[in-house]
Design a protein around this nucleic acid. Structure first.
Lengths: 154, 154, 154, 154
DNA sequence: TTTT
DNA sequence: TTTT
């Protein structure tokens, strides 16, 4: 299904609440800003930090879950792939954007902030996606029937 | 869909031709023996090698493809998860086995030996799986409809 | 440096407090029991869980940090490789063991239990490793001088 | 050593010969252009391809090896991290660049082109890096002494 | 913009 | 049992 491997694994903290939008077809697109920080010592022995801010996109059901349960500051595990996009800005200038397209997400650190979906978030789909024709599914979501075979034990 | 991450990434060479069997339900189960070798220097500065032999299992369509196109010696990329199994041998002794359950496979090194499925392999399903009720699909195979949404560009 | 890739990435919770031992040479060997759980639905639509218990080993400084800061229940990220070992038990039977040799570790979920090393753990090195000739270092620990070059910005 | 995980795994083919430059300090900086292609089917059932071109950087000894042994078309495994950089172009415009900083590299597919370092590449260091004060080492290069402990078997 |  |  592919020629090559393009895999990204991130564990970081959200710099902001997730941003969820819906396509005409009713599919959720959730965008996260995720920080990963690395530390090293320079020649003088001083500790130096550097933070990368990743722009992560989650589609479909995965995006809905992210939009409901994640919040600013939360620690999260993301698995996906890198995608480089090029578009022309309103000033006619070419711009480049790099995004991580998630196909797996895990909320980390349990406890606080989990289990209570945000009310205002939960409503949005109805408002902005009136024409939702079919439940969009996220990658790997239908794990069930892939293995619905009699004789394969878990 | 999970609490935790259990991910394995391997690049290695096959020690043998793949072994393909079929379940009562007609699903392929392909087993590979995959070698990964690491090199280090010991205290005396001598180069030392160590090879791990991984037992890799591929199910469904992925297993069929592996059985047809892979051969002894071939280099392959595998992504999957670790699974520890315990069973009782014929002598009543408990035995343990560790397997890598693949959900992604990539043939590496192109060229030689690719594109020519083995005839004897290709026939086996019919013989050993007469009751094949439905085409079993491998994980991630149905990438297509997951994203079949009007407005999301590739 | 190797012929092949043997990489494992785990996010899970500790089933027990870490077990730390020291070699004759004074190097820490920390063993963790780490659970990763996956969930799927069977044909009847019932949710089924399966937990894998990984035996993780951390050496040197990484093992010391793990032994001091980790505790039962804590969530942790581990990166390493799989190693299959075979040994002969006291009954003369051959036994097999699979271990994850860690070369990266990240404590997840912040908060509770971090920042307060366990007193009894912290002392052990002195007692059991009197002959510690040199500070053993964990893989990747010496990140500093690898990049101590004038002109490479962080 | 870090707060977060920022890991990239790529398997792809080189679009060009590697580009190697040297810092004032004599450290090699090798830049690769690496293609990973993914395939999917659209709603009409047509096969669609999309290729990402990754800009990969390898430093020190790893960069030297890459510069000598890799060539256009060669398949390669890269492990590293994502780095987003921002700089001001000659026109005063801000520009963004995303790079993969490699800390592991494996040539794949054996055979052709391996084992015969390119002559013109091999010379460059002397010419452009006259002041090479010390042999720069790549990440993970000094695997040897990290484990140089009496009692730890391979 | 996050986190420790 | 593979590979370089």
């Amino acid at each position: 299904m592919a020629r090559g491997v393009n895999k990204v694994i991130l564990v970081g903290n959200l710099g902001n609440d997730p941003d969820v939008k819906y396509t005409q077809g009713g599919m959720a697109i959730c965008t996260l800003s995720l920080a990963t920080t690395s530390v090293r010592k320079d020649k003088e022995g001083n500790t130096q930090e550097r933070t990368e801010w990743h722009r992560v996109k989650l589609f479909g059901k995965l995006g809905e879950i992210a939009g409901e349960y994640l919040r600013k500051g939360r620690q999260v595990y993301i698995e996906g792939s890198i995608r480089y996009d090029k578009f022309t800005g309103q000033d006619g200038q070419e711009r480049y954007i790099t995004e991580i397209i998630a196909d797996e997400m895990q909320m980390l650190g349990g406890g606080e902030g989990r289990g209570e979906p945000r009310a205002e978030r939960a409503e949005r789909p109805q408002r902005s996606a009136p024409a939702r024709r079919e439940a969009p599914t996220a990658p790997k979501a239908d794990f069930a029937d892939e293995f619905a075979d009699d004789d394969i034990p878990f």
